[in-house]
């Protein structure tokens, strides 16, 4: 029920941003539409703990700024590699163990790896992630496990 209500709230906020007109009739139509959409999605059984992880929201407050800072740092280093005339790349393929307990945690870890320039998660299976990195140094950084620990803390250890 919590996930139903929070999804309705999220969809209604999306309606408010897109519409821009705040008359009573449009607000009522928006509320009815969001309840209808979430009702349909509930019948498809996608609104649950895994499909709508709203409980991660308050921990995202410190995880997202850290991730943005990582993105900026590695983006600048990848830009230096692209612009340097000798093109000093050393492509590396590496297997990583994900220590997250839930599926959501592993997905967040794999997506964070892909979002950071310089590393792409190529294949994910259970707790094993194969990563392609543009330099061996970047692969070493991931192997050291800072991001893994951050995501495990973000997930909070409560898993299904």
């Amino acid at each position: 029920m919590l996930y139903f209500i929070s999804s309705v709230v999220v969809f209604f906020m999306f309606w408010l941003v897109l519409s821009g007109h705040y008359t009573l009739m449009l607000l009522a139509i928006g509320a009815v539409a969001s309840i209808l959409v979430v009702g349909l999605a509930t019948r498809m059984a996608v609104i649950d703990r895994e499909g709508h992880p709203i409980y991660l929201l308050y921990r995202a407050v410190w995880y997202w700024p850290w991730l943005f800072w990582e993105i900026v740092k590695s983006g600048i280093s990848v830009s230096k590699i692209i612009l340097s005339p000798t093109l000093p790349i050393s492509p590396t393929l590496i297997n990583l163990k994900a220590t997250q307990k839930s599926v959501v945690g592993v997905v967040v870890y794999a997506n964070s790896i892909t979002l950071t320039p310089g590393t792409v998660s190529v294949e994910v299976e259970d707790n094993e992630i194969t990563v392609h990195a543009i330099t061996t140094l970047g692969a070493m950084d991931l192997e050291e496990g800072k991001m893994d620990r951050m995501v495990t803390k973000f997930e909070g250890g409560i898993g299904t």
């Binding site: 492509p91 590396t92 393929l93 590496i94 297997n95 190529v122 294949e123 299976e125 094993e128 061996t136």
Partner: peptide, 12 residues
């Protein structure tokens, strides 16, 4: 690849 640390093993 210049370095392959997987030993030919891909996840999955």
């Amino acid at each position: 690849l210049t370095v392959d640390k997987t030993g030919g093993h891909i996840a999955g």
